[in-house]
Design a protein around this nucleic acid. Sequence first.
DNA 1: TTGAAAATGAAAACCAGTTTCAGTTACGAG
DNA 2: CTCGTAACTGAAACTGGTTTTCATTTTCAA
Lengths: 158, 158
Amino acid sequence: MKTSFSYEGIKKKGYKVTRQREIILDILRKANVHLSADEIYIKAKSRSPGIGLTTIYRTLEMLYNLGYVNKYDFGEGRARYELNDTMVETCKHHHHLVCLRCNRVIDYTDFVPQETELITKTISGISRKYGFKVQTHIIQFYGICKECQKRKNKNGRL
Amino acid sequence: MKTSFSYEGIKKKGYKVTRQREIILDILRKANVHLSADEIYIKAKSRSPGIGLTTIYRTLEMLYNLGYVNKYDFGEGRARYELNDTMVETCKHHHHLVCLRCNRVIDYTDFVPQETELITKTISGISRKYGFKVQTHIIQFYGICKECQKRKNKNGRL
DNA sequence: TTGAAAATGAAAACCAGTTTCAGTTACGAG
DNA sequence: CTCGTAACTGAAACTGGTTTTCATTTTCAA
């Protein structure tokens, strides 16, 4: 099953499986939104009050380096994380629409069939031309969401 | 010419054209790499020693809000900026290859002809489905660059 | 069981970016 | 041209996310 798989992966790399890491991984597994380190901290704290924020950061970094979590910057001044699709089957590959005004993030999953093909082609082109070994990619669209378009902002700028 | 165009755009929005803003805009115009606020500060300081870091941040934010500069996060914990292609004709639309090991950023400009078409199609789909008005987009590929692939890292991790 | 390597938590440090505020500047109205 | 005011500026203090340090605890292979 998936659970033991991830732990095995962690062990195999020489990392130890600790109670804290199990909790953090479980929180990520159950989350269906992008969590910040602090949000994970709050959730983890309710299960294991002694846990430290430092551990959250260290674990997230480890998981990121292992390729088990994706790390995003949506322009809020802090990172957000989610389990990679290789870890959770419910988490389908997706991209993001980021609202420049309210910072809301919409997951975008409606790919035209061409996309996968084009990305695959691009990745192999990148490998050939630059010798660059692509692990992941992100595509983010920045703009103004539906709600913010209605709302006029006061100073007329932006 | 381009120069007066940008200044006019700034004036038109109710912002003032100051010596500091001219310097910062000029630095961005001459840069052919993505600069951090601090790097811009150093360069600006050599031309106008009195300039403050605060002003750099404020100007970059203004230019970003006006859509004159692009703001990127390459996972270093600080933002990097570059003039938008609408401002400088030499700065062609491009994407990035970010090396997860050495943080090097390679500009990627070799688009397959399909790409523009696909992106356009996707943007109109996003607009239709989510009512989201796309202003810009970024596509970034993360992986290991040629040089880092040769270099084996000590602990065998990563 | 055990010992060494790895992981932990608390506190302090770090650092990019923001806010505050008093003084300065741009620039359009007159 | 000059004047008034809204916009801008720089210094310093502050904020808040993330990292480092270090003494203690835990994991797990031998």
